[in-house]
Design a protein around this nucleic acid. Structure first.
Lengths: 141, 141
DNA sequence: AGCAACTAAATTGTGCACAATGTAATTTGA
DNA sequence: TCAAATTACATTGTGCACAATTTAGTTGCT
């Protein structure tokens, strides 16, 4: 296997391994990993147009529309058209969705502990991933 | 606690960005990214039991069974039960599958160029991803 | 005013990922 | 020896990702 493929596979494998690490923790919250990312956006930003959630997570409507419907079905978010621009749908947390934030605080420490990287290695890796993402996206776009 | 600051999102975003980078190149070969990974295994290892492909890529039968059927449908691989152990299915390249290897050689240089990382940063990042994957898997398993 | 261009979402279809379940073949151990 | 456990694989169902198409609403231009 060629070196370039080793990098892409390392990335692919790491991403799936980390998602698998989250899974049992998020199961207890009734969330999938992408749903957790959407909740992170809503916890941080408050009520947000679907468009903005898509920009924050680099996900399109084909992914977000059904995902938000499932979060609504679970009673965690509401979706309503803006009155000032009826093209736009505003996603907002319900009380239950807000409340879930407290239980979700238990998640990051478990993840950080399992990653088992010294802080400087952690920052270095994250910075490398950002640079890689930026290079690749600028080459694509 | 912004989403962008978290390692998990950096990993998730990088993985999707790199897959998106491969997509137009692999489209010309008639392959998806996971199919390309399976072909890399077969090009490197020759005829392989589905089990071994799964071990190499950390993918289960639920992913590999239909994926291999599609590769077979595309005329790139054959699948046949072993005579000595009929539980096992051996995946092998057709001539067309072997021939695709030559066209696939054009892919890695384009990817490497787009990643735009100096060799030592490249190696460092790959090593970091491996360590992260190992830590996380050992914590899971 | 009126029409083209643009925008935000939703929908449809394909292909992963992965859990859970089922099945047939093989190995094991009392 | 033969029932129990194990192994390799297939299938079903859920939920992403993402391309392509469609719909409804808004803005821009003349």
């Amino acid at each position: 296997m060629l070196v370039e493929d080793q990098m892409c596979f390392a990335l692919y494998a790491a991403s799936r391994a980390v998602t698998a690490l989250y899974r049992p923790l998020l199961d207890e919250l009734g969330l999938t990993y992408p749903q957790y990312l959407v909740m992170l956006v809503l916890w941080a930003e408050g009520p947000s147009p679907v468009k903005d959630i898509g920009t924050a997570l680099a996900l399109d409507y084909g992914t977000l529309s059904p995902l938000l419907k499932r979060l609504q079905q679970a009673g965690l978010v509401t979706r309503q058209r803006r009155t000032d621009d009826e093209r736009s749908v505003l996603a907002a947390l319900t009380e239950e969705g807000e409340a879930l934030r407290e239980r979700a605080r238990a998640v990051p420490p478990v993840i950080a502990e399992a990653m088992n990287l010294p802080p400087e290695r952690f920052d270095e890796l994250r910075a490398g991933l950002r640079q890689l993402t930026d290079s690749v996206i600028s080459h694509t776009g």
